[in-house]
Amino acid sequence: MSALNEMSGLKKEPRGKKRKLTAAERKEELVSYLFLAPWLVGLAIITIGPMAASLYLSFTDYNLLQPPEWTGLDNYLRMFEDTRLQNSLGVTFLYVFVSVPLQLIAALALALILDRGMRGLSFYRSVYYLPSLLGGSVAIAVLWRQIFGTSGLINQLLALVGIEGMGWIADPSTALGTLMVLNVWTFGAPMVIFLAGLRQIPTMYYEAAAMDGASKVRQFTTITAPLLTPIIFFNLVLQIIGAFQSFTQAFVVSGGTGGPADSTMFFTLYLYQQGFGNFNMGYASAMAWLLLLIIAAFTFINFIASKWWVFYDD
């Protein structure tokens, strides 16, 4: 239970084991469940059932077309011998550790620039958000080859300055890099969240600080940064979760193969291939639960660490 307390990051309420709730507390509890009602119903009907089913399936041999057969821990043990799975974990970790920080820094920097204080901001914001609109559309697959292909835009530009390019997408050593670029380039979503967060900081703080003659840097470190920490934290947690589950971009750019040479084979892409390509849905489910454990561990660490750097007003 204490781990859960840590995880939620919400304040621990000290309560005696058998202490009776006061009438006011009981009323608040009732109100709470009313507010939570839609979510609880959704959890019971739509979410938990399939999650539990996938947990059950992870202990079975299930090919989607025939009833699952209980095989115990076989799927989990198999992961230890599956070198492609281990490779996909490596690819995924590398991707998470490189692209999440880069994307968040880009998003925060642009949110600060595009927050206020100049003309044409809404125009710039829209332009900078555009790549994120395209998301995982098929068009990206074609576009990325036009940019990073052997005869693509990058190589054409390099040729102008006399450098011979390479097949950025086709070479196993650079293919993952192009996906990281793609991810950083679609920083629109965290940027928007940062923008919204910046707008929630009361202007009176800045007015007061300006009155005191605080420099802009000073204002950033003493007002903006601390008050934005809940939002930075949110972006960090969710971007990590999202990056571990990255699928669409690799799927679209590599045509679902994770190629070249498995260099863009993200964990979820491999999971998808196992589940839908090879009809090993039992194994895919086991992989999904391994991923859940990994993501939960990272989220847990994040929440623990947040105690030291995230400031709430409650």
């Binding site: 239970m1 859960l4 507390e25 996938s54 998808y272």
Partner: peptide, 28 residues
């Protein structure tokens, strides 16, 4: 709001976004 099991429920809520859709879609 304050209610019992708040932290547990919050953790469960976060867990629901940690499973990839590909293993959820068939049961759903």
């Amino acid at each position: 709001l304050k209610f019992r099991r708040r932290n547990l429920l919050f953790a469960i809520m976060l867990m629901t976004i940690m499973l990839p859709i590909h293993v959820i879609i068939v049961p759903q």
